[in-house]
């Protein structure tokens, strides 16, 4: 019974996940007429597949070339993730192990302060950030985008890691202290190595959120630091080219899927439970 349910669930859910994706794959090979003149599903039977949607985004036809944007996205995502995970894991460890606070303002409130930074709709922050980066002369630069992204990523990283550190028994820290480590060394040498699943989850989220950020990229970059999502959205002209956009949607995911395979390996390797014994 449970097994049937499980199999059924896997099947149905995978189908649900794949439906829009496979539709995007099919659409990316359609000529415009096969989209606009009526629904078509099966290549070769209902329409003659063409590569023009893909050629349009890969710089082959001269329409658009997403590779420079891919590079921008990679640089910005990598650095903003690394920085926010480094700063975030220290803060999270601190919040998990020490008592902070002032009168009524305690650890949970500080954690909530971090998380609450994500509440503001990005559109509202786009103008102050514009002035901010303009003053620093960082508009349309990688560094500027990295700084802005950190503000969005750190809340997620801190919130996730506090939970993970909380689940690591304190005895481990104490053992390390007894062996003569100071708290820093204890954290670096003992805690971090066994928190790989937590770190990889946090980094995965950071990468995804940084990669897919649109509003800031849309407003704070022009040509030099334009990221992939901003460049993809900019393909949407007076006539929506569903075929090109489908191709670019897939083009945007492929690097992340590769990343997911790597990150997943860290995630699935044991867990804290094994390490703590």
């Amino acid at each position: 019974m449970a097994k049937t349910f499980r199999t059924l669930f896997i099947f149905v859910w995978s189908l649900f996940v794949l439906t829009p994706l496979s539709w995007a794959v099919v659409t990316s090979f359609k000529p415009p007429a096969a989209v606009n003149n009526g629904v078509t599903f099966i290549p070769w039977v209902q329409f003659k597949p063409t590569l023009s949607g893909w050629k349009d985004i890969l710089g082959i036809s001269g329409y658009a070339n997403l590779f420079p944007n891919l590079w921008n996205s990679v640089v910005i995502t990598t650095f903003s993730t690394i920085i926010s995970v480094i700063f975030g894991c220290f803060a999270a460890y601190g919040l998990s192990r020490f008592n902070y606070g002032w009168k009524f303002y305690k650890n949970p409130d500080i954690i909530f302060f971090f998380v609450s930074q994500r509440i503001m709709p990005p559109v509202v922050l786009s103008i102050p950030f514009f002035l901010f980066l303009k003053t620093l002369h960082l508009l349309d630069t990688h560094l500027g985008m990295i700084i802005i992204n950190i503000a969005g990523l750190m809340p997620i990283v801190v919130w996730l890691l506090v939970d993970f550190f909380n689940q690591i028994p304190r005895e481990i820290d104490e053992l390390a202290r007894l062996e003569g480590c100071n708290p820093f060394m204890a954290f670096l040498k003992v805690i971090l190595p066994i928190s790989r699943p937590g770190l990889s989850v946090a980094a995965t989220f950071a990468v995804i959120f940084a990669w897919n950020d649109l509003f800031f990229a849309l407003n704070l970059t022009f040509t030099n630091a334009k990221t992939l999502p901003a460049a993809v959205v900019a393909l949407n002209g007076t006539v929506t080219p569903f075929w090109t956009l489908s191709a670019s949607a897939l083009f945007t995911i492929i690097p992340l899927v590769g990343f997911a395979f790597v990150a997943e390996r860290f995630l699935s390797r044991g867990g804290f439970a094994g390490a703590s014994r």
Binding site: A64, L218, N219, F222, T223, K226, A230, A231, V233, A234, L235, N236, G237, T238
Partner: peptide, 12 residues
């Protein structure tokens, strides 16, 4: 050329 979608031309 800095391309943006039609809907963002104004605000940008």
């Amino acid at each position: 050329v800095d391309h943006v979608d039609v809907g963002s031309l104004y605000s940008k």
